[in-house]
Amino acid sequence: MIPPGAWQLLRGDSGYPECLERTPRPPAVLYGVGDPGLLVPGLGVVGARKATPYGLACARRFAGWAAAAGVVIVSGAAIGCDLEAHTAALDADGSSVAVLGCGADVDYPACASKVLASLRRCGAVVSEMPWGSPPHRRAFVPRNRIIAGLSAAVLIVEARLPSGTFTTADLAADAGREVLAVPGSIHAPESLGPNRLIRQGATSITDISELADELRALGIAVEPPGAPGRIPSGRDPLLRALRADPMRVDDLARTFDLDIVTATRRIAALEQAGEVVRYPDARYGVPVRETQRRYNQSVGEENPRVP
């Protein structure tokens, strides 16, 4: 059954996105729900499903800003960075396109159904799979070439090695699209992907003004961002250490040669002051409060018991 407001574009149709045509293997048919006018070169934002608070915060920050500046955000619909990018775009009243590995009318994964419903209403959800196709694992990697194809540039937020996210970067490079990557800690397995991409020649993005410059260089008109945000610095050596690298109390106590009670109390005081937060894996790190709830979802709990 074809859902209301659905459309399908054949290769050669006038509405078939030109940017997709210029890829090595454009899909023969593109099925979609929502606004077909959004299929213009946008900013792809992709990242790991098991993202860290850092990755989610980056996805939210860059996708949110770009969407507010009038750029269409393109991503999958997986839990983690993808969903975070879409929600950030929707929260900023921007436009966002989700590319699925199942039929464009199918809600997969189930936890994305709310976001997908919003996107069908005020964004777009597309797929090369016919209506009603169930999700199949072999469909997801080919799907990534559509994400790359609909993007002028693809921003890699977090990716393990090897991973689907990393293949999206390869596909974007094959299609001649700009690959952007957010660097991360050399200790974090989630940042291995972007860090390696930067070494291989991807552009590193550490700030919104850098992203704005890149988008302008690609011919996408964006509003200039305000002054770059100040990165807070603190005197407390514990706080500085936690900002650089999230740690558990035991490790912190050992690093600073404190007894456990003192370390626990100091770190808890920092948490109460809002300087650090406890991540679900018990490490303390920079607060990313607005993304905390979604991080909990990405590591497993659908409905956090404490709101």
């Binding site: 770190i267 808890a268 109460q272 679900p280 018990a282 709990e301 018991r305 404490v306």
Partner: peptide, 16 residues
């Protein structure tokens, strides 16, 4: 206050 602070470090988070 320091006793309360220490207690918060042992609270259960939403996800384990």
């Amino acid at each position: 206050t320091e006793h309360v602070a220490e207690a918060t470090a042992f609270r259960l988070l939403e996800s384990l």
